[in-house]
Amino acid sequence: MSAARPGLRRLRSAAGSGGSQTQGRPGVPRQSRRRKSVAIAYEAGQGEGAEPRRARWEPPRWREQLQHIRDMRSSRDAPVDEMGVQTCYDSSAPPEVMRYQVLLALMLSSQTKDQVTSAAMLRLRRRGLSVDSVLQMDDETLGQIIYPVGFWRNKVKYIKQTTAILKQKYGGDIPSTVEELVQLPGVGPKMAHLAMHIAWDSVAGIAVDTHVHRISNRLKWVKKETKSPEETRVALEEWLPRDLWKEINWLLVGFGQQTCLPVKPRCSQCLNQDICPAATRL
């Protein structure tokens, strides 16, 4: 094996096989006995003499920690379970209306408690919440309905702008990719990934909010401390098995609402108390 090309081995094909041709003379076999080296790539750790496969990084005891969180969340009685976005839309509505309601609930939920978002969505739905009904609504009326969600004035503007785009560009439906969703006014990565999960039943990435961001850093589920939810999403997706991506959001959000609080976390009530890197200093 060449030290300069780890993971590659060279197989040599005999000259005169009929495939080699002399430059400038098509069809004339080479007369030389020189052999030509052909590089064959294979997976690291495969083949004779290959270096062992390097193990993917993962945090110590994370499976045990995750199972403990599942156990603590088994009752599903956190605010996110009872009043989260997945409960805010009309499941009997036409699919495109349902998806629009999911996106609207996500836009309202930013920096807003689930209880407040749920109440605002209920008021909107009582008016027949759809793309057309929102476009026909003036800004003042929309503001009165969604108040007191966080930053409600900005959200009125974003909702009207996004709804107009959905009507003009998507026929009243919502985009079906994260790339398109984040181009809508007022829609960030977390909302986009949750919209894919809930509205399209598609897992394009991990939805990371402040709870997931905070808990992932406390448990050291990231190689190094991350400064934003988006950094945390990228760090988690590097090692967390894909079949857990959809589950991790609702698990950690509810856990963060009930036990691993932003201030004064209830470590004494946590099953991870003895294996949490942050428990001794919180």
Rank of each mutant, 00 (worst) to 15 (best):
M107L: 10
L135A: 10
M121W: 00
Y147E: 10
Q161D: 13
T162A: 15
F151I: 04
K155M: 06
L129D: 00
Q111D: 13
T117Q: 05
M137Y: 11
Q136T: 06
R127S: 07
K160L: 14
D138A: 12
S110K: 12
V131I: 07
S130D: 03
Q136Y: 08
Q144D: 14
R153P: 11
E140D: 04
W152T: 03
L122M: 04
Q115W: 04
E140M: 14
R123A: 11
K113L: 08
G150N: 02
D138Y: 07
E140I: 13
Q144R: 15
L129V: 12
L129E: 06
R126G: 08
D114H: 03
G128Y: 09
R125E: 01
T162M: 13
M121Y: 01
I146Y: 04
T112D: 13
R153G: 10
K155W: 03
V149Y: 01
S133E: 06
K157Q: 07
F151K: 01
E140S: 09
Q144W: 01
Q144Y: 09
Q144N: 14
A119C: 05
Q161V: 14
G150A: 05
G128I: 10
Q111R: 15
E140W: 08
R127Q: 14
T112G: 15
Q115T: 06
V131A: 06
Q136V: 04
F151G: 03
V156L: 01
S133C: 07
S118H: 14
I146D: 01
I159G: 12
M121F: 00
S130C: 08
I145Q: 00
S118G: 02
K160N: 05
S109T: 11
V131H: 04
L108T: 07
I159D: 15
R153I: 15
R123N: 05
L142K: 10
M107K: 06
S109Y: 06
T162E: 01
Q136F: 10
I145N: 02
L135I: 11
S109P: 14
T141I: 11
Q136H: 10
R123E: 06
L124M: 06
L108Y: 09
S118A: 05
P148L: 02
V134E: 02
L108V: 14
V131G: 06
E140P: 00
Q136L: 10
L135D: 13
G128C: 09
S130R: 05
I159R: 02
L129W: 06
W152I: 03
N154M: 13
W152C: 11
S118P: 01
G150F: 02
G143P: 12
Q161N: 11
I145K: 01
D138T: 14
K157G: 05
L135S: 13
E140F: 13
V116H: 03
R126C: 01
P148Q: 07
K157P: 10
